[in-house]
Design a protein around this nucleic acid. Structure first.
Lengths: 350, 350
DNA sequence: TGTTAGCACTCGAAATTGAAGAGTGCTAAC
DNA sequence: GTTAGCACTCTTCAATTTCGAGTGCTAACA
C-alpha cells in the first residue's frame, strides 16, 4: 500500500480535483471546470496539457474523444491509498442508538447492514461470524416426550444450535444422564476438526446399546456445524444501485442485484476478504480488483470484525467506482470497531 | 368465484385467444393475428367486430388508438376464474427431489421459494408459519457455566427457540430442577396469549429468591415469541421481474425489488392472505386487487399452507399481469400440498 | 342477418436530421 | 512554461419524417 507515484505536486492536485468532482457529479470533468474550481490559477489550456499527461500515465481516461476525463481504476486506487493513510474519529450517535437496541446477534447484524446502507446510500452486506477453528463448548440432551430428544449444542462465540432427534423407544433418565456425561466429557472444548471417524467409533462403543443415539447426536452436530459453515449473509440497500446511472442500466443492475439475492457471489467475496491478512482489516477493491466478476464496474469496500474466539465476520459495501470513499472508509471503521466492541463486551448470542 | 359473464361462446373463445397470445408475447394482439391463430375460420374483420364488443364490455382495451388489444384486469379475472375450476395432477420430480433434501424448516422454505422461482420464472416469497394461537410445549433451563443459563423453549409446530440468560450467582442443581418443574407445570401447553401479568406475578412469587431468573425466562419467552411473530420471509427470483419489459423500467423495478428486499410490504401481503378465508387457500390478485400499492402493475398469486396446530404460512408469486396463470396455479397447488404433507408428515423443525 | 373485402385514417415506434454545446488538441504568441 | 484562440470531434436533444400495424366503417356478398 505504498503511495509511490512519480507525480508532481500539481498533477496530483489536478488529479485529486478531477476525482473529487467526478465523485460528486458522475459526469466527465473538463479542463475548464478544473481551471475554475481549484485555486491554482491556471488556465484551462494548461490543465489540458497536464491532463494529457495524466491520461498517458493511465490515471484518467476519456469515455470518448471530446468528453471530459474520468478517473481510471488506477486513478481511484491512488486516491484511495492516499485516503487510507488519514484517520478520523467522528461518531454518529443515531447509528449507535440503533445498534444498541438489537440484542440478538442476527438482529444486530441485520441492523448493522441497514444502518450502513442508509448512512452511505450504497448496497451493503454483513456476514455472520465464521470460525476457522470452532470449538464445542457444551452439549445437552433433553427428552421432550417419548419420541423426541432435543440436542442443544453451544459452539464457540456463544452460538447455539439445536436439533430434534427422534428415537424409537424412550431413554431412561439414568441413561440420558450417562449419555450427557459421555458427550460432554469427550467433546467439550474440542475443535470441530478433531472430530473424526476414530473418535466417533470410540464414542459409539462407549455408548453401548445407545450407540444409535450417539450417532444421531453426532449427525446433529455435523448438521449444526454444516449450517453454520455456509454462513448467513444479510444484505440491505441493494436497490441503492439504481441511484447511480452508470450501474443502473438493466444489464448491470440485474447482475448486481442477482448477486445480492443469491448470495453465492457474496460468499466468495467474504471468503476472499477473510483470507486476506491486513493490519486494519479494511480493504478496497476497485473495479476488476474485486474477486467477483459481477462487480467489475463497482467498487467494493470490506472490513472484517472479530469475535473473541477466532470467529471472524465481514462487512461490505458495494457501490459505483465513484464512491464517496472518504465517507465510506470512515463509516466502515466506525462500524467495525463498534461490532468488535460489542462482541468483546460479551454475551450476545443467537 | 362464479364465472358469470354474458358472453357468447365465440366471444369467449376470442377473448381466450387474445389473452393467451398476449401472455406469450407481451405485445398487444391485433385482429389479424387472432383470425389466423385460431381455428375458427373467421376473417379479421369479423374478429374486429367482436373485439369492439369485448372492449365495450370491458374485458380488453387498447393501449392507444391503433394498437392491438390487451386484456384488462377484468379480462384476466375472467380467464383466471375459468382456470381455477380446472384441476390437474401432474408432478415434477425434480422439484420434489430438491425439496426432499432439505430437512430443517428454514432450509425447506428457502428451498421452496427457490424451486418455485426457477420453475415459474417469477419472483417468489415464502413466509414462515405464523401461529394465531401458539402454545408452549416445553421449557428447559440448563446451566452452561457459572454465569450462563440456556433456556430452551419449544413452541407448537416443534419450533425451537433458545436464549442465553446471565445470572449473577450460580444456581444449585436442586434449585434449577425446582425452577424447571415450576415452569413446566405452569406453562406447558399454555397458549401464549394467556401469559399475563397476574400469572407472571404468581410465578415469581412461587420462585421465591429466584424470581429474578423467572423474570428473565419469561422475558426470554416473550422475546422468542416476539421474534417469531415478526415472521421471516424468504424470497427468491426477485430479478426475474427484469424479464418482463412492462415491469422493468427503472421506476417499477426499483419499487418492486425494494418491496422484496425490505419485506415490509410482503408482510402486509401475507397478513392479508392469511386473514382471507377460502376453501382452496389459493388467491389471485390482479393489478389493483392486491393489498399492496406497489404491486398495482403486477399479478400476485398466494397460497396458504398449514402446519398441524393452527400455524399457517404463505407462498406467493409476484409477476406481470400477463402471468402464465395456468402454470402458476398448477405449481402453487402442487407446492402447497407438498408443504402441507411434509409438515403433517411430522418432525421437521427448526 | 351475419360475414367479408377494401380503404382511408390514426397513431406509435423508429429512423433521420440538424443545431447546440462541451471539450479537446494544436499552434502561435507572450 | 503559460496562455489565448481556433478548428475539429463527438454527444445530446429535439424536431421531423417515415413506416407499418391496426382500426372503424362501408359496401358487397351469401
Amino acid at each position: 500500500m505504498v503511495t509511490d507515484h512519480g507525480l508532481s505536486d500539481r498533477k496530483l492536485k489536478i488529479l485529486h480535483a478531477i476525482i473529487k468532482t467526478y465523485l460528486e457529479t458522475g459526469e466527465p470533468v473538463g479542463s475548464r471546470t478544473i481551471s475554475k474550481y481549484t485555486d491554482m490559477n491556471l488556465s484551462s489550456a494548461t490543465i489540458r496539457n497536464e491532463m494529457a499527461d495524466l491520461e498517458e500515465l493511465g490515471f484518467i481516461m476519456q469515455p470518448h474523444t471530446s468528453a471530459g476525463r474520468i478517473p481510471s481504476d488506477k486513478g481511484y486506487r491512488l486516491y484511495v491509498d492516499m485516503l487510507m493513510d488519514e484517520k478520523e474519529q467522528e461518531l454518529l450517535e443515531k447509528e449507535e442508538q440503533m445498534l444498541e437496541k438489537a440484542d440478538r446477534m442476527e438482529q444486530l447484524l441485520k441492523q448493522a447492514a441497514k444502518v450502513l446502507a442508509s448512512s452511505t446510500n450504497y448496497a451493503t452486506m454483513v456476514s455472520t461470524p465464521m470460525g476457522s477453528s470452532n470449538k464445542i463448548k457444551f452439549i445437552q440432551l433433553t427428552m421432550v416426550d417419548q419420541e423426541q430428544i432435543i440436542a442443544v449444542i453451544m459452539l464457540g462465540g456463544n452460538v447455539l444450535k439445536n436439533k430434534i432427534i427422534r428415537v424409537d423407544e424412550p431413554l431412561s433418565n439414568e441413561n440420558l444422564l450417562k449419555l450427557n456425561m459421555l458427550l460432554n466429557t469427550t467433546l467439550n472444548g474440542m475443535p470441530i476438526e478433531e472430530i473424526n471417524l476414530g473418535l466417533i467409533a470410540r464414542l459409539k462403543e462407549q455408548a453401548g446399546i445407545h450407540s444409535e443415539v450417539v450417532g444421531n447426536v453426532l449427525d446433529a452436530v455435523a448438521d449444526a456445524i454444516q449450517v453454520d459453515e455456509d454462513m448467513q449473509i444479510y444484505t440491505s440497500g441493494a436497490t441503492n444501485i439504481f441511484k447511480y446511472p452508470e450501474l443502473s442500466d438493466k444489464q448491470s443492475a440485474q447482475e448486481i442485484i442477482s448477486a445480492f439475492e443469491e448470495k453465492q457471489q457474496l460468499t466468495e467475496l467474504v471468503t476472499q476478504t477473510l483470507s486476506q491478512e491486513d493490519n486494519t482489516g479494511i480493504q478496497v477493491y476497485i473495479g476488476d480488483e474485486a474477486p467477483v466478476q459481477t462487480m467489475k464496474d463497482c467498487s467494493v469496500v470490506t472490513a472484517t470484525y472479530e469475535l473473541g474466539d477466532g470467529m471472524k465476520g465481514t462487512i461490505g459495501i458495494i457501490g459505483p467506482k465513484r464512491m464517496d470513499y472518504e465517507h465510506v472508509l470512515k463509516s466502515m471503521k466506525r462500524l467495525q470497531s463498534e461490532l468488535d466492541q460489542m462482541f468483546h463486551g460479551g454475551g450476545k448470542a443467537s
